[in-house]
Design a protein around this nucleic acid. Structure first.
Lengths: 239, 239
DNA sequence: CGAGCAGTTGAAAGAGCTCAAAACTAGTGG
DNA sequence: CCACTAGTTTTGAGCTCTTTCAACTGCTCG
Protein backbone atom coordinates (compact mmCIF):
# COMPACT_ATOMS: atom_id res chain seq x y z
CA UNK A 1 0.00 0.00 0.00
CA UNK A 2 2.71 2.46 0.99
CA UNK A 3 5.37 0.91 -1.21
CA UNK A 4 5.35 3.78 -3.69
CA UNK A 5 5.53 6.28 -0.88
CA UNK A 6 8.61 4.56 0.52
CA UNK A 7 10.16 4.33 -2.95
CA UNK A 8 9.75 8.06 -3.31
CA UNK A 9 11.27 8.79 0.10
CA UNK A 10 14.16 6.39 -0.45
CA UNK A 11 15.22 8.10 -3.66
CA UNK A 12 16.12 11.11 -1.53
CA UNK A 13 17.26 9.63 1.79
CA UNK A 14 17.73 6.45 3.74
CA UNK A 15 14.69 5.35 5.68
CA UNK A 16 15.39 2.96 8.52
CA UNK A 17 13.24 -0.02 9.31
CA UNK A 18 12.10 1.67 12.49
CA UNK A 19 10.99 4.66 10.47
CA UNK A 20 9.29 2.51 7.87
CA UNK A 21 7.36 0.73 10.60
CA UNK A 22 6.36 4.04 12.15
CA UNK A 23 5.02 5.18 8.80
CA UNK A 24 3.10 1.98 8.15
CA UNK A 25 1.66 2.03 11.66
CA UNK A 26 0.44 5.57 11.16
CA UNK A 27 -2.19 4.69 8.59
CA UNK A 28 -5.63 4.91 10.17
CA UNK A 29 -7.61 3.82 7.14
CA UNK A 30 -7.73 3.63 3.38
CA UNK A 31 -10.30 5.71 1.56
CA UNK A 32 -11.43 5.82 -2.03
CA UNK A 33 -12.51 8.78 -4.13
CA UNK A 34 -14.23 8.82 -7.46
CA UNK A 35 -12.66 10.59 -10.40
CA UNK A 36 -13.42 14.33 -10.55
CA UNK A 37 -14.38 14.52 -6.92
CA UNK A 38 -13.10 17.06 -4.45
CA UNK A 39 -11.34 15.24 -1.64
CA UNK A 40 -10.36 18.17 0.57
CA UNK A 41 -11.89 21.58 0.39
CA UNK A 42 -9.93 24.79 0.93
CA UNK A 43 -10.33 26.45 4.35
CA UNK A 44 -11.69 23.27 5.88
CA UNK A 45 -10.14 22.39 9.22
CA UNK A 46 -8.00 19.23 8.98
CA UNK A 47 -6.82 16.74 11.59
CA UNK A 48 -5.31 14.21 9.21
CA UNK A 49 -3.19 14.10 6.07
CA UNK A 50 -3.37 11.67 3.19
CA UNK A 51 -0.94 9.77 1.03
CA UNK A 52 -2.03 9.08 -2.53
CA UNK A 53 -1.88 5.32 -3.05
CA UNK A 54 -3.22 5.11 -6.59
CA UNK A 55 -4.68 7.43 -9.19
CA UNK A 56 -3.92 11.02 -10.13
CA UNK A 57 -4.91 13.93 -7.90
CA UNK A 58 -4.11 17.63 -7.86
CA UNK A 59 -4.04 20.82 -5.87
CA UNK A 60 -6.41 23.32 -7.39
CA UNK A 61 -7.20 26.94 -6.64
CA UNK A 62 -10.47 28.44 -7.83
CA UNK A 63 -11.48 31.99 -8.63
CA UNK A 64 -14.96 33.42 -8.10
CA UNK A 65 -15.86 33.41 -11.78
CA UNK A 66 -15.07 29.75 -12.35
CA UNK A 67 -11.55 30.10 -13.68
CA UNK A 68 -9.21 27.78 -11.85
CA UNK A 69 -5.56 26.81 -11.74
CA UNK A 70 -4.07 23.48 -10.83
CA UNK A 71 -0.91 24.25 -8.89
CA UNK A 72 0.52 20.74 -8.71
CA UNK A 73 -0.28 17.25 -9.91
CA UNK A 74 0.04 14.41 -7.42
CA UNK A 75 1.11 10.93 -8.35
CA UNK A 76 1.00 7.71 -6.29
CA UNK A 77 3.37 7.86 -3.34
CA UNK A 78 2.89 11.60 -2.84
CA UNK A 79 1.68 13.02 0.44
CA UNK A 80 -1.11 15.09 -1.05
CA UNK A 81 -1.67 17.34 1.93
CA UNK A 82 1.12 16.80 4.41
CA UNK A 83 1.28 20.57 4.77
CA UNK A 84 -2.18 20.62 6.37
CA UNK A 85 -0.42 19.29 9.48
CA UNK A 86 1.21 22.65 10.17
CA UNK A 87 -1.17 24.86 8.16
CA UNK A 88 -4.31 23.44 9.88
CA UNK A 89 -6.36 24.11 6.76
CA UNK A 90 -5.47 24.28 3.09
CA UNK A 91 -5.46 27.29 0.79
CA UNK A 92 -6.55 25.07 -2.10
CA UNK A 93 -8.76 22.10 -2.89
CA UNK A 94 -7.39 18.61 -3.33
CA UNK A 95 -9.16 16.99 -6.26
CA UNK A 96 -9.09 13.37 -7.37
CA UNK A 97 -8.75 13.64 -11.14
CA UNK A 98 -9.17 9.93 -11.64
CA UNK A 99 -10.40 7.29 -9.22
CA UNK A 100 -8.00 7.45 -6.27
CA UNK A 101 -7.06 5.55 -3.16
CA UNK A 102 -5.66 7.40 -0.17
CA UNK A 103 -3.98 6.31 3.06
CA UNK A 104 -5.11 8.48 5.94
CA UNK A 105 -2.56 9.58 8.56
CA UNK A 106 -3.87 11.43 11.63
CA UNK A 107 -2.04 14.65 12.54
CA UNK A 108 -1.48 13.38 16.06
CA UNK A 109 0.72 10.67 14.54
CA UNK A 110 2.68 13.27 12.64
CA UNK A 111 3.10 15.24 15.83
CA UNK A 112 4.37 12.13 17.53
CA UNK A 113 6.88 11.68 14.72
CA UNK A 114 8.20 15.24 15.13
CA UNK A 115 8.75 14.48 18.82
CA UNK A 116 10.28 11.02 18.59
CA UNK A 117 11.73 10.56 15.12
CA UNK A 118 13.44 13.84 14.25
CA UNK A 119 15.14 12.43 11.19
CA UNK A 120 11.87 11.21 9.72
CA UNK A 121 10.37 14.57 10.61
CA UNK A 122 13.10 16.22 8.54
CA UNK A 123 12.42 13.83 5.67
CA UNK A 124 8.78 14.94 5.71
CA UNK A 125 9.83 18.55 6.00
CA UNK A 126 11.92 17.92 2.93
CA UNK A 127 8.90 16.43 1.17
CA UNK A 128 6.93 19.64 1.61
CA UNK A 129 9.96 21.65 0.46
CA UNK A 130 10.05 19.51 -2.65
CA UNK A 131 6.45 20.46 -3.35
CA UNK A 132 7.46 24.10 -2.99
CA UNK A 133 10.31 23.57 -5.46
CA UNK A 134 7.83 22.14 -7.94
CA UNK A 135 5.59 25.14 -7.38
CA UNK A 136 8.53 27.43 -8.17
CA UNK A 137 9.31 25.62 -11.39
CA UNK A 138 5.68 25.94 -12.38
CA UNK A 139 5.80 29.66 -11.61
CA UNK A 140 8.71 29.89 -14.00
CA UNK A 141 6.75 27.95 -16.61
CA UNK A 142 3.58 29.98 -16.16
CA UNK A 143 5.42 33.28 -16.11
CA UNK A 144 8.01 32.80 -18.82
CA UNK A 145 7.59 29.74 -20.99
CA UNK A 146 5.43 29.73 -24.10
CA UNK A 147 2.78 27.01 -24.33
CA UNK A 148 4.85 24.32 -26.10
CA UNK A 149 7.76 24.53 -23.66
CA UNK A 150 5.38 24.67 -20.73
CA UNK A 151 3.62 21.53 -21.83
CA UNK A 152 6.83 19.70 -22.70
CA UNK A 153 8.12 20.57 -19.25
CA UNK A 154 5.10 19.03 -17.58
CA UNK A 155 5.52 15.82 -19.55
CA UNK A 156 9.19 15.64 -18.52
CA UNK A 157 8.44 16.23 -14.86
CA UNK A 158 5.73 13.60 -14.77
CA UNK A 159 7.95 11.12 -16.53
CA UNK A 160 10.57 11.46 -13.79
CA UNK A 161 8.09 11.41 -10.94
CA UNK A 162 6.20 8.42 -12.27
CA UNK A 163 9.38 6.59 -13.10
CA UNK A 164 10.47 6.85 -9.46
CA UNK A 165 7.40 4.95 -8.33
CA UNK A 166 7.55 2.42 -11.13
CA UNK A 167 4.63 3.70 -13.16
CA UNK A 168 6.34 4.14 -16.51
CA UNK A 169 6.76 1.59 -19.27
CA UNK A 170 9.81 2.52 -21.28
CA UNK A 171 9.31 6.15 -22.16
CA UNK A 172 5.58 6.16 -21.81
CA UNK A 173 3.07 6.42 -18.99
CA UNK A 174 -0.64 6.68 -18.29
CA UNK A 175 -2.02 10.15 -17.76
CA UNK A 176 -5.78 9.81 -18.02
CA UNK A 177 -6.59 13.53 -18.00
CA UNK A 178 -8.75 15.48 -20.39
CA UNK A 179 -7.30 18.32 -22.43
CA UNK A 180 -9.55 20.56 -20.33
CA UNK A 181 -7.71 19.45 -17.17
CA UNK A 182 -4.39 19.85 -18.89
CA UNK A 183 -5.45 23.39 -19.68
CA UNK A 184 -6.19 24.09 -16.02
CA UNK A 185 -2.74 22.76 -15.21
CA UNK A 186 -0.89 24.80 -17.79
CA UNK A 187 -2.71 28.10 -17.44
CA UNK A 188 -4.07 27.82 -20.99
CA UNK A 189 -7.44 27.24 -22.61
CA UNK A 190 -8.42 23.78 -23.76
CA UNK A 191 -8.48 24.98 -27.36
CA UNK A 192 -4.91 26.11 -27.14
CA UNK A 193 -3.91 22.91 -25.38
CA UNK A 194 -5.34 21.00 -28.29
CA UNK A 195 -3.32 23.02 -30.81
CA UNK A 196 -0.15 22.85 -28.76
CA UNK A 197 -0.53 19.09 -28.47
CA UNK A 198 -0.72 18.89 -32.26
CA UNK A 199 2.36 21.03 -32.56
CA UNK A 200 4.36 18.85 -30.17
CA UNK A 201 3.22 15.73 -31.95
CA UNK A 202 4.24 17.17 -35.31
CA UNK A 203 7.72 17.84 -33.91
CA UNK A 204 7.90 14.15 -33.10
CA UNK A 205 9.06 14.30 -29.48
CA UNK A 206 5.93 13.47 -27.49
CA UNK A 207 2.47 12.29 -28.05
CA UNK A 208 -0.53 12.51 -25.73
CA UNK A 209 -3.32 10.25 -26.83
CA UNK A 210 -6.15 8.39 -25.08
CA UNK A 211 -4.78 9.27 -21.68
CA UNK A 212 -1.27 8.10 -22.37
CA UNK A 213 1.94 10.06 -22.84
CA UNK A 214 4.52 8.55 -25.15
CA UNK A 215 7.92 10.17 -25.39
CA UNK A 216 9.67 9.21 -28.58
CA UNK A 217 12.67 11.53 -28.20
CA UNK A 218 13.64 12.36 -24.64
CA UNK A 219 16.57 14.54 -25.69
CA UNK A 220 14.41 16.50 -28.08
CA UNK A 221 11.66 16.87 -25.53
CA UNK A 222 13.92 18.15 -22.77
CA UNK A 223 15.38 20.59 -25.28
CA UNK A 224 12.07 22.14 -26.26
CA UNK A 225 11.08 22.07 -22.59
CA UNK A 226 14.31 23.65 -21.36
CA UNK A 227 13.97 20.92 -18.74
CA UNK A 228 16.50 20.69 -15.92
CA UNK A 229 15.58 18.08 -13.27
CA UNK A 230 17.60 19.83 -10.55
CA UNK A 231 14.44 21.10 -8.91
CA UNK A 232 13.27 17.52 -8.31
CA UNK A 233 16.18 16.82 -5.95
CA UNK A 234 16.96 13.33 -7.13
CA UNK A 235 20.12 12.83 -5.05
CA UNK A 236 20.15 10.77 -1.90
CA UNK A 237 21.29 12.84 1.09
CA UNK A 238 21.01 12.69 4.84
CA UNK A 239 18.29 15.24 5.53
CA UNK B 1 17.96 42.41 14.93
CA UNK B 2 15.51 39.50 14.89
CA UNK B 3 12.56 41.50 16.17
CA UNK B 4 10.77 41.47 12.84
CA UNK B 5 11.38 37.75 12.50
CA UNK B 6 9.79 37.16 15.89
CA UNK B 7 6.90 39.46 15.04
CA UNK B 8 6.23 37.39 11.96
CA UNK B 9 6.36 34.10 13.88
CA UNK B 10 4.16 35.41 16.67
CA UNK B 11 1.37 36.40 14.33
CA UNK B 12 0.94 32.68 13.63
CA UNK B 13 1.84 30.98 16.91
CA UNK B 14 3.07 31.50 20.43
CA UNK B 15 6.84 31.50 20.78
CA UNK B 16 8.11 30.83 24.27
CA UNK B 17 11.01 32.69 25.84
CA UNK B 18 13.10 29.54 25.65
CA UNK B 19 12.40 29.32 21.93
CA UNK B 20 13.11 33.00 21.41
CA UNK B 21 16.44 32.60 23.15
CA UNK B 22 17.28 29.55 21.07
CA UNK B 23 16.59 31.54 17.92
CA UNK B 24 18.64 34.52 19.02
CA UNK B 25 21.50 32.27 20.08
CA UNK B 26 21.52 30.62 16.68
CA UNK B 27 22.76 33.65 14.81
CA UNK B 28 26.38 33.14 13.83
CA UNK B 29 26.91 36.49 12.16
CA UNK B 30 25.29 39.37 10.36
CA UNK B 31 26.16 39.92 6.72
CA UNK B 32 25.43 42.73 4.31
CA UNK B 33 24.69 42.57 0.60
CA UNK B 34 24.62 45.36 -1.93
CA UNK B 35 21.50 45.98 -3.95
CA UNK B 36 21.20 43.82 -7.08
CA UNK B 37 23.69 41.29 -5.85
CA UNK B 38 23.18 37.55 -5.85
CA UNK B 39 23.40 36.29 -2.29
CA UNK B 40 22.93 32.57 -2.84
CA UNK B 41 23.38 30.83 -6.14
CA UNK B 42 21.23 27.92 -7.28
CA UNK B 43 22.80 24.44 -6.96
CA UNK B 44 25.40 25.69 -4.51
CA UNK B 45 25.84 23.48 -1.45
CA UNK B 46 24.63 25.24 1.72
CA UNK B 47 25.40 24.70 5.39
CA UNK B 48 23.55 27.72 6.73
CA UNK B 49 20.30 29.59 6.23
CA UNK B 50 19.67 33.32 6.47
CA UNK B 51 16.99 35.55 7.91
CA UNK B 52 16.42 38.84 6.10
CA UNK B 53 16.90 41.62 8.63
CA UNK B 54 16.45 44.63 6.37
CA UNK B 55 15.96 45.35 2.69
CA UNK B 56 14.02 43.53 -0.03
CA UNK B 57 15.27 40.24 -1.49
CA UNK B 58 13.77 37.63 -3.77
CA UNK B 59 13.91 34.09 -5.05
CA UNK B 60 14.65 34.11 -8.74
CA UNK B 61 14.85 31.38 -11.37
CA UNK B 62 16.75 32.01 -14.58
CA UNK B 63 16.45 30.53 -18.04
CA UNK B 64 19.34 30.00 -20.44
CA UNK B 65 18.39 32.87 -22.72
CA UNK B 66 18.27 35.49 -19.99
CA UNK B 67 14.57 35.43 -19.23
CA UNK B 68 13.97 35.09 -15.53
CA UNK B 69 11.11 34.81 -13.09
CA UNK B 70 11.01 35.97 -9.49
CA UNK B 71 9.05 33.34 -7.60
CA UNK B 72 8.70 35.18 -4.29
CA UNK B 73 9.62 38.50 -2.74
CA UNK B 74 11.18 38.48 0.71
CA UNK B 75 10.59 41.15 3.30
CA UNK B 76 12.38 41.77 6.62
CA UNK B 77 11.71 38.99 9.11
CA UNK B 78 11.51 36.32 6.42
CA UNK B 79 13.74 33.27 6.48
CA UNK B 80 14.97 33.64 2.92
CA UNK B 81 16.32 30.14 2.53
CA UNK B 82 15.22 28.07 5.47
CA UNK B 83 14.41 25.33 2.98
CA UNK B 84 18.10 24.91 2.13
CA UNK B 85 18.35 23.10 5.47
CA UNK B 86 16.53 20.08 4.13
CA UNK B 87 17.10 20.64 0.41
CA UNK B 88 20.89 21.00 0.83
CA UNK B 89 21.05 23.31 -2.18
CA UNK B 90 18.53 25.65 -3.74
CA UNK B 91 16.77 25.38 -7.06
CA UNK B 92 16.85 29.16 -7.43
CA UNK B 93 19.04 32.17 -6.71
CA UNK B 94 18.46 34.44 -3.75
CA UNK B 95 18.98 38.02 -4.88
CA UNK B 96 19.21 41.16 -2.78
CA UNK B 97 17.10 43.65 -4.71
CA UNK B 98 18.08 46.53 -2.45
CA UNK B 99 20.86 46.75 0.11
CA UNK B 100 20.15 43.97 2.59
CA UNK B 101 21.24 42.73 5.99
CA UNK B 102 21.03 39.04 6.80
CA UNK B 103 21.33 37.02 10.01
CA UNK B 104 23.16 33.76 9.35
CA UNK B 105 21.93 30.56 11.07
CA UNK B 106 24.08 27.42 10.65
CA UNK B 107 22.23 24.28 9.63
CA UNK B 108 23.68 22.41 12.57
CA UNK B 109 21.73 24.77 14.83
CA UNK B 110 18.55 24.03 12.90
CA UNK B 111 19.24 20.34 13.26
CA UNK B 112 19.67 20.84 16.98
CA UNK B 113 16.30 22.59 17.07
CA UNK B 114 14.57 19.70 15.31
CA UNK B 115 16.00 17.38 17.96
CA UNK B 116 15.36 19.44 21.07
CA UNK B 117 12.60 21.93 20.35
CA UNK B 118 9.99 20.06 18.32
CA UNK B 119 7.43 22.82 18.61
CA UNK B 120 9.81 25.41 17.23
CA UNK B 121 10.73 22.93 14.53
CA UNK B 122 7.07 22.72 13.59
CA UNK B 123 6.85 26.51 13.55
CA UNK B 124 9.71 26.60 11.06
CA UNK B 125 8.16 23.81 9.07
CA UNK B 126 5.05 25.97 8.98
CA UNK B 127 7.14 28.90 7.75
CA UNK B 128 8.31 26.95 4.71
CA UNK B 129 4.73 25.80 4.09
CA UNK B 130 3.67 29.42 4.14
CA UNK B 131 6.21 30.12 1.40
CA UNK B 132 4.69 27.27 -0.59
CA UNK B 133 1.22 28.75 -0.11
CA UNK B 134 2.50 32.05 -1.48
CA UNK B 135 4.00 30.20 -4.43
CA UNK B 136 0.61 28.63 -5.11
CA UNK B 137 -1.16 31.96 -5.04
CA UNK B 138 1.41 33.29 -7.50
CA UNK B 139 0.83 30.30 -9.74
CA UNK B 140 -2.85 31.22 -9.75
CA UNK B 141 -1.94 34.82 -10.58
CA UNK B 142 0.51 33.88 -13.31
CA UNK B 143 -1.77 31.30 -14.81
CA UNK B 144 -5.15 32.97 -14.62
CA UNK B 145 -5.12 36.63 -13.67
CA UNK B 146 -4.73 39.39 -16.26
CA UNK B 147 -1.97 41.92 -15.63
CA UNK B 148 -3.93 44.49 -13.61
CA UNK B 149 -5.34 41.92 -11.17
CA UNK B 150 -1.97 40.25 -10.91
CA UNK B 151 -0.26 43.48 -10.02
CA UNK B 152 -2.99 44.57 -7.61
CA UNK B 153 -2.67 41.23 -5.91
CA UNK B 154 1.03 41.69 -5.36
CA UNK B 155 0.48 45.12 -3.83
CA UNK B 156 -2.12 43.66 -1.46
CA UNK B 157 0.09 40.77 -0.40
CA UNK B 158 3.03 43.03 0.29
CA UNK B 159 0.87 45.42 2.25
CA UNK B 160 -0.16 42.62 4.60
CA UNK B 161 3.31 41.15 4.92
CA UNK B 162 4.99 44.48 5.53
CA UNK B 163 2.28 45.55 7.94
CA UNK B 164 3.00 42.50 10.10
CA UNK B 165 6.59 43.61 10.60
CA UNK B 166 5.70 47.26 11.09
CA UNK B 167 6.96 48.54 7.77
CA UNK B 168 3.84 50.31 6.55
CA UNK B 169 2.77 53.88 7.20
CA UNK B 170 -0.99 54.04 6.94
CA UNK B 171 -1.80 52.42 3.64
CA UNK B 172 1.58 53.02 2.06
CA UNK B 173 4.96 51.35 2.11
CA UNK B 174 8.39 51.54 0.55
CA UNK B 175 9.03 49.20 -2.35
CA UNK B 176 12.20 50.45 -4.01
CA UNK B 177 12.07 48.21 -7.07
CA UNK B 178 12.34 49.17 -10.70
CA UNK B 179 9.51 48.46 -13.12
CA UNK B 180 11.91 46.01 -14.72
CA UNK B 181 12.07 44.02 -11.47
CA UNK B 182 8.32 44.25 -11.06
CA UNK B 183 8.06 42.75 -14.54
CA UNK B 184 10.27 39.82 -13.54
CA UNK B 185 7.99 39.31 -10.55
CA UNK B 186 4.72 39.43 -12.47
CA UNK B 187 5.73 37.45 -15.53
CA UNK B 188 5.31 40.51 -17.75
CA UNK B 189 7.57 42.83 -19.73
CA UNK B 190 8.63 46.13 -18.25
CA UNK B 191 6.74 47.97 -20.99
CA UNK B 192 3.54 46.25 -20.03
CA UNK B 193 4.20 46.84 -16.35
CA UNK B 194 4.48 50.54 -17.11
CA UNK B 195 1.16 50.56 -18.90
CA UNK B 196 -0.59 48.50 -16.25
CA UNK B 197 0.73 50.83 -13.57
CA UNK B 198 -0.84 53.73 -15.42
CA UNK B 199 -4.10 51.87 -15.69
CA UNK B 200 -4.22 51.10 -11.96
CA UNK B 201 -3.35 54.69 -11.13
CA UNK B 202 -6.12 55.95 -13.38
CA UNK B 203 -8.58 53.73 -11.51
CA UNK B 204 -7.53 55.48 -8.34
CA UNK B 205 -6.85 52.50 -6.08
CA UNK B 206 -3.07 52.31 -5.95
CA UNK B 207 -0.10 54.27 -7.00
CA UNK B 208 3.51 53.12 -7.40
CA UNK B 209 5.89 56.01 -7.61
CA UNK B 210 9.52 56.60 -6.68
CA UNK B 211 9.78 53.24 -4.97
CA UNK B 212 6.72 53.71 -2.84
CA UNK B 213 3.31 52.07 -2.99
CA UNK B 214 0.35 54.14 -1.85
CA UNK B 215 -3.04 52.48 -1.55
CA UNK B 216 -5.83 55.03 -1.65
CA UNK B 217 -8.71 52.56 -1.72
CA UNK B 218 -8.06 49.22 -0.07
CA UNK B 219 -11.56 47.89 -0.80
CA UNK B 220 -11.27 48.85 -4.44
CA UNK B 221 -7.80 47.37 -4.72
CA UNK B 222 -8.74 44.03 -3.19
CA UNK B 223 -11.72 43.93 -5.55
CA UNK B 224 -9.69 44.40 -8.72
CA UNK B 225 -7.10 42.00 -7.28
CA UNK B 226 -9.64 39.34 -6.29
CA UNK B 227 -7.52 39.29 -3.14
CA UNK B 228 -8.31 36.83 -0.38
CA UNK B 229 -5.69 36.80 2.42
CA UNK B 230 -6.53 33.25 3.47
CA UNK B 231 -3.35 31.95 1.89
CA UNK B 232 -1.26 34.09 4.24
CA UNK B 233 -2.48 32.18 7.30
CA UNK B 234 -2.92 35.13 9.62
CA UNK B 235 -4.53 33.21 12.49
CA UNK B 236 -2.61 32.26 15.59
CA UNK B 237 -2.65 28.49 16.12
CA UNK B 238 -0.61 25.92 18.00
CA UNK B 239 1.46 24.40 15.24
C1' DC C 1 -30.41 5.55 -31.47
C1' DG C 2 -29.74 9.59 -28.99
C1' DA C 3 -27.42 12.14 -25.33
C1' DG C 4 -23.43 13.86 -23.62
C1' DC C 5 -18.71 14.46 -23.22
C1' DA C 6 -14.16 15.12 -25.32
C1' DG C 7 -11.68 16.51 -29.01
C1' DT C 8 -11.04 19.32 -33.31
C1' DT C 9 -11.36 23.21 -36.44
C1' DG C 10 -12.05 28.07 -38.20
C1' DA C 11 -12.27 32.96 -37.88
C1' DA C 12 -11.85 37.08 -35.40
C1' DA C 13 -10.52 39.71 -31.34
C1' DG C 14 -7.49 40.92 -27.73
C1' DA C 15 -3.85 40.94 -24.30
C1' DG C 16 0.65 41.35 -24.01
C1' DC C 17 5.21 41.44 -26.59
C1' DT C 18 8.97 43.47 -29.47
C1' DC C 19 11.57 47.01 -31.12
C1' DA C 20 12.96 51.52 -31.05
C1' DA C 21 13.14 56.03 -29.75
C1' DA C 22 12.29 59.86 -26.59
C1' DA C 23 11.90 61.93 -22.00
C1' DC C 24 12.97 62.07 -17.55
C1' DT C 25 16.13 61.46 -13.18
C1' DA C 26 19.91 61.50 -10.48
C1' DG C 27 24.55 61.31 -9.87
C1' DT C 28 29.47 62.86 -11.56
C1' DG C 29 32.91 65.71 -12.57
C1' DG C 30 34.68 69.89 -14.60
C1' DC D 1 26.41 75.65 -11.73
C1' DC D 2 26.22 73.29 -15.88
C1' DA D 3 27.26 69.58 -19.00
C1' DC D 4 27.39 64.68 -19.29
C1' DT D 5 26.37 60.03 -18.46
C1' DA D 6 23.78 56.02 -17.14
C1' DG D 7 19.79 54.12 -15.67
C1' DT D 8 14.79 54.27 -15.56
C1' DT D 9 10.38 55.48 -17.24
C1' DT D 10 7.36 56.55 -20.97
C1' DT D 11 5.42 56.38 -25.62
C1' DG D 12 4.31 54.61 -30.40
C1' DA D 13 3.48 51.15 -33.80
C1' DG D 14 3.25 46.70 -35.46
C1' DC D 15 3.10 41.94 -34.49
C1' DT D 16 2.22 37.27 -32.13
C1' DC D 17 0.54 34.28 -29.11
C1' DT D 18 -3.41 32.98 -26.90
C1' DT D 19 -8.29 33.57 -26.23
C1' DT D 20 -13.07 33.64 -27.52
C1' DC D 21 -16.94 31.97 -29.71
C1' DA D 22 -19.18 28.84 -32.33
C1' DA D 23 -19.74 24.98 -34.90
C1' DC D 24 -18.73 20.22 -36.03
C1' DT D 25 -16.97 15.46 -35.39
C1' DG D 26 -16.45 11.32 -33.02
C1' DC D 27 -16.88 8.30 -29.33
C1' DT D 28 -19.13 5.84 -25.50
C1' DC D 29 -22.72 4.24 -23.02
C1' DG D 30 -27.43 3.81 -21.44
Amino acid sequence: MLDKHLMKLRVRDEISLEEETAIRDSVREITTARGRSTVVRAHERMDFSTILVSGIACRRKDLEDGRSQITELQVPGDFTDLHSFSLKYLDHDVVALTQCKFAVIPHERLKWITEHLPHLARVYWFATNLDAAIHREWELSLGRRPAPARMANLFCELYIRLNIVGLTTGYSYDLPLTQETLAETLGLTSVHVNRTLQLLRSEGNVQFDKGRVTISDWEGLTATAEFDPGYLYLERETR
